[in-house]
Design a protein around this nucleic acid. Structure first.
Lengths: 149, 149
DNA sequence: AGAGCTTATGCATATTTATGCAACTTTTTG
DNA sequence: CAAAAAGTTGCATAAATATGCATAAGCTCT
């Protein structure tokens, strides 16, 4: 699915330094998405991903301010990653978007979530129990990433 | 002269939408700088100019995010303490500095760090696992306090 | 001024990225 | 349910960008 792939692209480029579309292609292949460079060229365009020079060549990066078209539609596009450790869940967002996403999470009123704390581009979500962590992550991905029912 | 040309490049790309290096080459020619695309490729790299997708193709733009690398050396003096409990790391900073330090930590892109949340003078850093806490603290001290390049 | 060194540039080309087109899939409409 | 419309993708290729190498332009020191 396209949206899942694009979500994974966002994860990948914010997690590690991806220097070319072919490098990205190989990373995606590891994760089970096999597509061609042509598709990635289109994906990056749609995601508004910028290519910026760095010390050792280039690197792709999510573009914070410029393209309002990215920020506009849904919370989905503002989310970069959803990860967790043993005690809490961390949602990484585009710069300045954490509070908006946090509000949305709050309105979902999931009893497994006892609270959220928003920074600038990071949102902490505290589950009612560490045992609920996995369940809450599923819930978040269903409700935030895929798009609302 | 190179520096004058690069200065003019900065002027040009912020004044109008330049979509390719050849387009830039023609604009520079109008201003009396005649160089080849190869030189411009190098210039843009040195200037840290990003290429970002827009509605009609692409456009070059001065990179907004470079600030973090500039800030890094200064961050050292803003950090007061780095401590941790069982689930997260807390960095105390000078008043109002937590977000700046947080940005720098973000740009370090350590996979053991899944997110940061900045208050005014307190920065939370969430490790990927509580087992990584010690390692992350070492990392932070190495990269922020000592000030490695 | 000239030898030796560093930097800048062009040329040719390799590498990377974008895109027209056709095949295929999914969604919408009648 | 069929037909049409819209969307997605791969393929081949065009377009754009980066780079190795050689040369030229500065610079420094004697």
């Amino acid at each position: 699915m396209k949206s899942q792939r694009q979500f994974t692209i966002k994860e990948l480029i914010s997690a590690k330094a991806i220097g070319s579309q072919d490098e990205l292609r190989l990373e995606l292949k590891k994760k089970g998405f096999k597509v061609t460079q042509a598709t990635l060229s289109r994906d990056l365009q749609e995601l508004g991903v910028a290519r910026l020079p760095s010390d050792d060549g280039f690197r792709y990066a999510l573009q914070p301010g410029t393209s309002a078209s990215i920020l506009r539609p849904a919370v989905t596009t503002e989310i970069i990653t959803i990860t967790a450790n043993e005690s809490m869940i961390v949602v990484r967002t585009l710069p300045g978007c954490a509070n908006v996403v946090g509000e949305v999470v709050d309105t979902l009123r999931n009893p497994d979530i006892i609270g959220t704390v928003a920074g600038d581009n990071t949102l902490l979500i505290i589950p009612s129990s560490v045992k609920k962590t996995k369940k809450v992550i599923e819930f978040l991905k269903d409700n935030l990433v895929k798009g609302k029912p």
